[in-house]
């Protein structure tokens, strides 16, 4: 006699009710969790604005830091950050794009290419503070660049290099094969194909990765602390060999002061930081969105 389980509709229905209730509870909890994360963030960020907004004025944006809360400002830090962004992008982007092209187009599936893959993945996972002490040893100390903008930019370049390589490779990979084949069929060499077909087609994606890297450079603090950008800087740098401060560093300095006023000034600094950061994030996302549409 075959063994069978006859499940009565009633039994099934009772169990099903319980399971459906559990599901409803879960959905409610999940939705609340999502809202809670969102709400907490909004709450926290709005407290930054409440605290910082009253210190944020033209004087704050155009003055050097000062011992007196009402006189202090963020000007040298803004200039320092600008230098850092320009230099870092100028160093890291060409190298990053070049190595992405090599890895994607020339190195094939050789062993070197695979180990490079792994190495770049590893570099992307190293904590930023370690890049900082590496930069401290190699650029500040051994190359005698001192605690200069150049040392800072070189350090940050190493930090964002793997990110740029990885995202540029993805951009290059997304170029349809057919386009390349047409170019080859017209007698173009490999480099000509890359130069006149692959790069133009993937340029929007590469631009996205560059813009998002700028956002990253603006927000990076730890490596700059490590290479010693934490000096009390009154003047703006004149060359890449000058000492410097940056937005994040200035905020950190104010946060380390015991007076309550400086905590609020730090909040004002954070508003500036977040606005700049948000600006580049938004542009980056918009360009990526457009690029995505373009691809379709």
């Amino acid at each position: 006699m075959a063994k069978e389980v006859i499940l009565s509709a009633k039994a099934i229905s009772i169990r099903a009710k319980r399971r459906k209730l559990a599901e409803k509870v879960f959905v409610v909890i999940a939705f609340i969790s999502l809202l809670a994360v969102l709400f907490t963030l909004i709450q926290l960020l709005s407290s930054v604005f409440v605290k910082g907004l009253k210190w944020l004025d033209l004087q704050f944006l155009t003055s050097p830091p000062s011992r007196f809360p009402e006189k202090t400002g963020i000007y040298p830090a803004l200039i320092g950050s600008t230098w850092l962004i320009v230099l870092t992008i100028a160093i890291a982007v060409p190298i990053g794009v070049a190595s992405a092209i090599f890895l994607e187009e020339y190195s094939g599936k050789s062993r070197i290419s695979r180990s490079l893959d792994i190495i770049i993945g590893n570099l992307a996972g190293i904590p930023s503070i370690i890049y900082g002490i590496f930069g401290l040893a190699i650029f500040v100390r051994y190359l005698h660049l001192g605690r200069s903008i150049l040392a800072g930019a070189l350090t940050l370049s190493l930090l964002i290099l793997p990110v740029i390589i990885i995202s540029t490779r993805e951009a290059i990979r997304a170029v349809p094969r057919g386009l390349r084949e047409i170019s080859y069929a017209l007698g173009a060499t490999k480099w000509q194909t890359i130069r006149y077909v692959v790069l133009p087609v993937s340029s929007r994606w590469i631009a996205t990765s560059v813009i998002l890297s700028i956002a990253r450079v603006i927000g990076e603090t730890a490596p700059l602390i490590a290479i010693g950008a934490l000096s009390f800087i009154m003047t703006t740098p004149r060359s890449v060999f000058d000492p410097f401060t940056a937005l994040t560093i200035q905020i950190y300095t104010w946060l380390s002061k015991p007076q309550q006023d400086f905590k609020e000034i730090a909040a004002a600094g954070i508003i500036v930081l977040l606005l700049l950061f948000g600006f580049f994030m938004a542009i980056g996302s918009a360009v990526r969105y457009r690029a995505g549409k373009f691809k379709e």
């Binding site: 930054v48 603006i218 946060l255 909040a267 954070i270 930081l273 950061f277």
Partner: peptide
């Protein structure tokens, strides 16, 4: 991607 110094500020202040 929010700069982590912002989180540091939020924690402390």
């Amino acid at each position: 991607s929010i700069p982590t110094i912002v989180y540091g500020y939020l924690a402390l202040v």
